[in-house]
Computed example of a mutant assay.
Amino acid sequence: MKNILIINSGSSSLKFQLIRMPSEEVMASGMVERIGLDNAKLHYKVGDNSITEELEVKDHAVALKAITDYLMNSEIGVIRNKDEIAAVGHRVVHGGNVFSKTIAINAEVKEKIRENFSLAPLHNPPNLKGIEVAEELFPSSRQVAVFDTAFHQTIPQKAAQYAIPTEFYEKRHIQLYGFHGTSHKYVSKKAIEELQKDNSKIISIHLGNGCSITAVKDGKSVDHSLGFGPVNGLIMGTRSGDIDQSVIFYLIDELGYTSQEVSDLLHKKSGMYGLTGYSDLRDIEEQAAKGNKQCQLAMDMNAYRIKKYIGAYAAVMNGVDALVFTAGIGENSSVIRSLVCRDMDFFGIKLDEEKNKIRDKKLRAIEAEGSKVKILVIPTNEELEIAQQSFELIS
């Protein structure tokens, strides 16, 4: 048995899970939020016991030290000393075109992560900070990097390259990279197990505040809706998804927006929030049920965009065996699932509305009898996927 500490460092947060492998037992979990701000909070959970404490947390080093103290606490801790942690698995959002698999961290790996700061300015810097802090706190533990982009390295060049001068692809590595790869990999593996079919064609639909959809053929990503950055594709909580590039030029040239203002508009003020004033789908569903036409339109637009990608990816793979809904919205919104699967008879996609309404935290099939395509709701578990890959690397 080996204990794997999973670290997910954000700009002002640090999430963690301590997982015992290969039994996959979650020994402890939680997060520190509002790092560097007033009233930072540490949430710590062991079994059915949950603790929340306000702390002064000036940086990620203090946050991880506080987590470590809880893990080794004589009353609520789960380990006696740091040496009981065999490896620390780090989620790193952008690996560029360098990293196609999970890798042990060394100086060269850290430098490559740093070189990709410009590709993921909100994510890679805190990811690297988490690595550096963990190296100091856990000197005897293996440090492992698991990249969100790695799963999408199998996307063929005909899908990954943009139709701009080739030098931008060859010299500047401007291409589709994709995101949410750890989630898409985890749920697609579960779907393949459910199908009991090696030569599978799966469309994985990750719907949360950030959204993406992936065509997975024979267990490999072959196309994906997010690209060079995490703003295109599906309509998201505050991000626009696909938009005509001419709109950007119009905002800058005719309306006087700066490029930064356009970036803020597309990343933080668009999507469901821009359409309705709400970024949380639960609020939008509630308002739509009360007759708010704009909220209903936003949900219709959201589902319509997903349906377009399903059609495209079914064409790319010459068929589809299963749709997979995952992440917060995908797992919990029966309304969105119903809108997406409506009028898809041509593809053999038929939803059982009663099964769709059932709430459960386990994998479940919700297709109607006679549906040619399996419709699966699979709770994602990125932390477990990171633990599995880290364990495989150090074993």
Results as ranks from 00 to 15, higher is better:
residue 4 I to A: 05
residue 7 I to E: 13
residue 8 N to A: 07
residue 9 S to W: 11
residue 15 K to P: 03
residue 16 F to I: 03
residue 18 L to H: 13
residue 20 R to D: 03
residue 20 R to W: 00
residue 21 M to W: 06
residue 24 E to C: 08
residue 27 M to F: 00
residue 30 G to T: 08
residue 31 M to A: 14
residue 32 V to G: 04
residue 33 E to I: 05
residue 34 R to Y: 07
residue 35 I to W: 01
residue 36 G to A: 09
residue 47 G to K: 02
residue 49 N to F: 00
residue 49 N to C: 00
residue 50 S to G: 05
residue 51 I to F: 10
residue 59 D to Y: 04
residue 66 A to T: 04
residue 67 I to C: 01
residue 68 T to R: 09
residue 68 T to H: 06
residue 71 L to E: 12
residue 75 E to K: 10
residue 75 E to T: 10
residue 76 I to M: 11
residue 77 G to D: 10
residue 77 G to C: 11
residue 77 G to V: 07
residue 79 I to E: 06
residue 81 N to M: 03
residue 82 K to A: 11
residue 89 G to S: 09
residue 91 R to V: 01
residue 91 R to Y: 04
residue 94 H to G: 11
residue 98 V to H: 14
residue 101 K to M: 12
residue 102 T to W: 12
residue 104 A to K: 10
residue 105 I to Q: 07
residue 114 R to P: 01
residue 114 R to K: 15
residue 115 E to D: 14
residue 121 P to C: 09
residue 123 H to N: 14
residue 127 N to H: 15
residue 130 G to W: 06
residue 139 P to V: 08
residue 143 Q to A: 10
residue 145 A to E: 01
residue 145 A to F: 03
residue 146 V to W: 06
residue 148 D to Q: 11
residue 150 A to N: 12
residue 151 F to E: 15
residue 152 H to R: 02
residue 163 A to L: 08
residue 164 I to V: 14
residue 169 Y to P: 02
residue 170 E to C: 01
residue 174 I to Y: 04
residue 177 Y to F: 15
residue 180 H to M: 12
residue 183 S to I: 08
residue 184 H to F: 08
residue 186 Y to D: 02
residue 189 K to P: 00
residue 198 D to L: 00
residue 198 D to W: 00
residue 199 N to G: 00
residue 200 S to R: 02
residue 203 I to T: 04
residue 205 I to S: 06
residue 205 I to A: 00
residue 209 N to Q: 11
residue 216 V to G: 02
residue 218 D to E: 15
residue 236 M to G: 13
residue 238 T to L: 07
residue 241 G to C: 07
residue 242 D to C: 12
residue 242 D to W: 08
residue 243 I to M: 06
residue 248 I to S: 13
residue 249 F to R: 03
residue 256 G to V: 07
residue 257 Y to A: 07
residue 263 S to F: 05
residue 265 L to W: 07
residue 267 H to K: 09
residue 273 Y to H: 10
residue 273 Y to N: 11
residue 277 G to V: 04
residue 277 G to M: 11
residue 279 S to M: 04
residue 281 L to S: 09
residue 284 I to C: 04
residue 286 E to S: 14
residue 286 E to A: 15
residue 289 A to D: 14
residue 291 G to N: 08
residue 300 D to F: 10
residue 303 A to C: 05
residue 303 A to Y: 12
residue 305 R to A: 11
residue 306 I to T: 03
residue 306 I to H: 13
residue 306 I to P: 11
residue 309 Y to C: 15
residue 309 Y to P: 08
residue 311 G to W: 08
residue 313 Y to H: 06
residue 313 Y to Q: 06
residue 317 M to V: 03
residue 318 N to T: 14
residue 319 G to Q: 00
residue 320 V to M: 11
residue 326 T to C: 01
residue 329 I to A: 03
residue 333 S to A: 14
residue 333 S to H: 02
residue 334 S to C: 05
residue 338 S to T: 15
residue 338 S to F: 03
residue 342 R to W: 13
residue 343 D to M: 06
residue 344 M to C: 13
residue 344 M to T: 12
residue 351 L to D: 02
residue 352 D to A: 03
residue 355 K to Y: 00
residue 355 K to N: 01
residue 368 A to L: 15
residue 371 S to D: 05
residue 375 I to K: 12
residue 378 I to W: 02
residue 381 N to A: 04
residue 382 E to K: 04
residue 383 E to T: 01
residue 384 L to Q: 02
residue 384 L to Y: 09
residue 384 L to V: 02
residue 385 E to D: 14
residue 394 I to P: 12
residue 395 S to F: 06
